[in-house]
Design a protein around this nucleic acid. Structure first.
Lengths: 338, 338
DNA sequence: TTTATTTACGAAAACGTTTAAGTACGAAAC
DNA sequence: GTTTCGTACTTAAACGTTTTCGTAAATAAA
């Protein structure tokens, strides 16, 4: 095991001080071009890599960001991570991943463990049960934070979201126009502003189409994914909707299975539109109508926003763009048959 | 902005030395129960979080692992990450994510940037074009590395893989038994041992069924995902297979579209089985027959293996379990119609 | 010529931990 | 009664950078 090469090694071999080496490596203007050249050459030759711990400790910068999300194994979030990682790469930053599994206590534990200088900034899509605003109030005062998709309502918080209200409104109207009169809403994000916006879009569209039911047709999400099928099947059997707008992708598979189980023809007896980033939406039977969020673009934008903040550029929380989702009408919400 | 709380703060308030504080926080046997109690109480009260950089620098341990994969936005890898993250959580470790996008130079750059003490260990699923064995030879001597799924052939390297040969063999036989005589293989991992094993399973099964063609029916993957549809459609049109075994999930959507485009009835004229972790496989039209790898379990296992190594437990590279994939026969490889 | 200013570098002090080595004290061993 | 030992601490030196401040020489301004 040969000795690890440090700035000291380089300094000794070149007969200069470690300060000069350090400055040369970070391309300081204090150092002559010639010296920089010599240092870089030797560094390359000896495969020198600066020790990140020492560097972080001294400089209070980590070149690392954290991404906190409910689940990695989800089409939306994995696409978002892809976008985030791409931007981080451009800035030569490292990316830490944390999954909350919709557990808001884990979320708090993660953020707490991050404020002590492990990362320079945080990108977060909160748990569906996140309610502790005070925690985030204090968090965003300690470290740069950008929320994406699932944000919470804090003034001055940076968040990148999509046009939840408009797309839910449009999808609901689309169902109404295609003949649905009992349109249900599968809510997965009850407590969140994101979920509330989608719900409001749905409600307003119902209102406008004069389809408001005496009893609301809204199903709240369950925590246990294994119970989802039963919950959805029970809901459909019970409420007999002829149209469904699902606010999260997780409901899609249960909906399809429930229809098979209950012998319901989709889209004949029941039409479905879902927020979803399924690559196979068009290949399903029937092809799924989706509200497709620009997940990749959201990841990129959220990360870009964070880096602007980290680079001390002016960012106005109120002027962040609202990304547009796309309603893609396919068989599941169209006329029967193919 | 109030002063950050460090061991020094705690030491001063308790009138003990910082060494005692540090040892108390790490539950050293040198410290009395009473002192530990006092330290921990104060730490909690002041929201003390140990500075990771200082800790890493001094202790040469980071409590961080890196995961290097081709893509996050892929059902197999996102499930694997989920498993990895779960195990890392149990050990209170942090997880860094790096995407290579199948670029082996990026892979080398990542690993090089990691050996200088940024992480304690690496989990990697290599690029499909990874060929530089020497690089990995030297890497595994510098830092604990565990390969998963896409491994490379280095003696003494730890790798967690599935029964690629057997499952490819079985799937091919399944196609043959269901009447296919011109069975093609869509190769996505040409250079890798993983891909070679799958190819061999396919070939041996063809051989056994006496279905070897004079001209091999093998399509190599392309680098550009946008060209995949054209490549697949061209291949099918050209070679006229009546059965396809696809070695990666990326070929699935192109296959379905190609069939539509070429007006080929699946499974009537062409049957398909693919390595895949699609959640919607059963809902496609026709439902997709898959070889489903235990991605989540692989992630867990690979991570567990890495932690055994990090904890200096004996691990014999040759005795690592071979995980079993599951062949799930559905409509796409079955009899026509539903 | 004298006095600023600029350029290129060095000395040394951080950054916040961990840990090796040392110490004081009481209890047990002889 | 001395010696040994274990317990519960302290001291001080790392770990490998970055950064502040200082300085000598060279150049420009006066």
């Amino acid at each position: 095991m040969k000795r690890h090469v440090t700035v000291k090694t380089l300094a000794e071999q070149l007969n200069i001080s470690i300060a000069t080496v350090s400055k040369a490596l970070s391309d300081s203007h204090e150092i002559s071009a010639e010296t920089k050249q010599r240092v870089n050459d030797l560094a390359r030759m000896l495969n020198y890599e600066r020790n990140p711990a020492a560097s972080n400790l001294r400089s209070h910068r980590t070149r690392t960001i954290a991404v906190i999300i409910p689940e990695v194994a989800n089409n939306f979030f994995s696409l978002a991570i892809k976008g985030i990682e791409e931007i981080a790469r451009q800035h030569n930053f490292h990316v830490l991943i944390y999954q909350t599994h919709e557990n808001s206590e884990a979320e708090i534990a993660f953020t707490n463990s991050l404020v002590s200088g492990r990362v320079d900034g945080i990108l977060i899509s909160v748990t569906r049960s996140t309610g502790n605003l005070a925690h985030f109030q204090s968090l965003i005062r300690q470290i740069p934070v950008v929320f994406f998709d699932r944000s919470i309502e804090i003034p001055d918080a940076f968040s990148i979201t999509t046009d939840d209200y408009e797309s839910a409104f449009e999808a609901t109207r689309h169902l109404a126009e295609n003949g649905c009169s009992r349109i249900a809403f599968l809510q997965g994000l009850d407590q969140l502003a994101t979920g509330q916006r989608r719900l409001k879009g749905y409600r307003d569209a119902l209102d406008q189409a004069n389809l408001v039911q005496p009893q609301p047709l809204v199903l709240s999400g369950t925590d246990d994914p294994r119970q989802l099928l039963q919950a959805v099947a029970g809901f459909i059997k019970d409420k007999q909707p002829d149209g469904i707008l699902s606010s999260i992708e997780e409901f899609v598979v249960p909906c399809y299975y429930a229809c098979r189980e209950l012998n319901i023809d989709m889209p004949g007896q029941l039409k479905l539109v879902s927020f979803s980033n399924l690559q196979t939406a068009a290949l399903l039977k029937p092809a799924l109508s989706t509200i497709t969020q620009p997940a990749f673009e959201m990841g990129r934008l959220a990360a870009a926003c964070l880096f602007r903040i980290l680079n001390n550029k002016e960012v106005d929380p109120c002027e962040l763009p609202l990304l547009r989702s796309e309603l893609i009408e396919r068989e599941s919400s169209g006329i029967s048959g193919i």
